[in-house]
């Protein structure tokens, strides 16, 4: 097992190199650069084009260098924890990410928890009561959840909050709490709003999870070992939970690793609409103004999380399923 993990980690190294290249390609694909976008927006607002300042920035960040030099300048800093600079804020990318990552991870993990807590029992119920009214109802609402675009649901909830309760649900807390130290009041404020992204993103993933759990349960309930357990006189509820669900959940557990990248990319669009202090909106802004190192770093991190997640999945699967052994 340990050998296996080491081997897998070693294989990941060339993959990660490849990922940095792809991420860099994606962000250098648009014509022009941050400076051009910046100058254009200055011009639009009637501001003076400070040609000299622009040249200075260009020189400082090496924006006129060939692409491969820029790439090298970017990755060179990785071993030292340097991911480049955020042009628009004039500070290191790593700072921005460090500031927003905790919120991103918090919201995403709560979302996953929410999805699982509801989807697993519903999936089990739907399988056991296949084709019952309840099964159809859950199927319907599950699909409704996937079918509503996240941004739309976010808007609708905010609209309702504003119209019927007079509360502004955007952001994670009122602006004045930003940067304040954590206290009970601040936590209350966050608690009041954090459910919005959780529901918005959670409902989108719910149906998929329900479907998988239901399908796996149906598969397991057909297995001979289920009849065997019943023939021993094991109670039906125990047959369902201890026997069928115990195995049906294995493939889902193995997808926990796959959920890791979703920690960053899952709530991106909802985050933008809701104005959350997460990485999604930052990526959006960065892409819009071609703040390339920030955008590239966020994209790169989300891809790397997939790799780590896959490894994690395989390890988890080996833990929950005694049949699987890696050597």
């Amino acid at each position: 097992m340990v050998n296996y993990i080491i081997r897998r980690t070693l294989i990941m190294i060339p993959m990660i190199v490849f990922i940095t290249i792809v991420s860099f390609l994606i962000i250098t694909l648009p014509p022009g650069s941050y400076i051009d976008t910046y100058l254009a927006s200055l011009q639009r607002m009637g501001g003076q084009v400070e040609q000299e300042r622009a040249e200075a920035i260009k020189a400082r960040y090496g924006l006129d260098d060939p692409v491969y030099v820029q790439y090298w300048n970017w990755v060179r800093g990785f071993p030292y924890g340097r991911l480049g600079m955020v042009f628009s804020e004039d500070r290191p990318v790593i700072d921005v990410i460090a500031e927003r990552l905790p919120y991103t991870v918090l919201i995403s993990s709560l979302t996953l928890l929410f999805t699982w807590i509801f989807a697993i029992p519903i999936g089990i119920y739907s399988a056991v009561k296949q084709y019952s009214a309840g099964d159809y109802l859950f199927t319907f609402f599950g699909f409704l959840g996937v079918s509503i675009p996240n941004f739309l649901l976010a808007l609708v909830i905010m609209f309702m909050g504003l119209r019927y309760f007079g509360v502004n649900l955007s952001g994670l807390m009122p602006a004045r709490y930003m940067g304040e130290p954590w206290n009970l009041e601040k936590i209350m404020q966050v608690a009041q709003r954090i459910w919005v992204p959780i529901i918005v993103v959670g409902t989108a993933g719910m149906a998929g999870l329900i479907r998988v759990m239901r399908g796996e349960m149906l598969d397991q309930l057909r297995q001979p070992y289920i009849q065997m357990a019943r023939s021993k006189g094991v109670s039906e509820i125990k047959v369902i939970i201890k026997y069928a669900a115990r195995i049906a959940i294995n493939p889902l557990i193995s997808t926990i690793g796959w959920l890791l990248p979703q920690l960053i990319s899952g709530g991106m669009i909802a985050g933008i609409v809701l104005g959350l202090p997460t990485l999604g909106p930052k990526l959006y802004d960065a892409l819009m103004i071609q703040d390339m190192y920030l955008a590239g770093s966020i994209i790169m991190i989300s891809i790397i999380l997939v790799l780590v997640g896959t490894l994690l999945s395989d390890i988890l699967l080996a833990i929950v399923d005694p049949r699987i052994r890696y050597d």
Binding site: Q223, P224, Y225, Q227, M228, A229, V234, Y243
Partner: peptide, 23 residues
Amino acid sequence: MREIRKTYLAMIFQDPMSSLSPV
């Protein structure tokens, strides 16, 4: 029915590999 099964009845199934829970 469960009472009857656990006290009086027992069954051996055709496929031994899938008739015991793998976990």
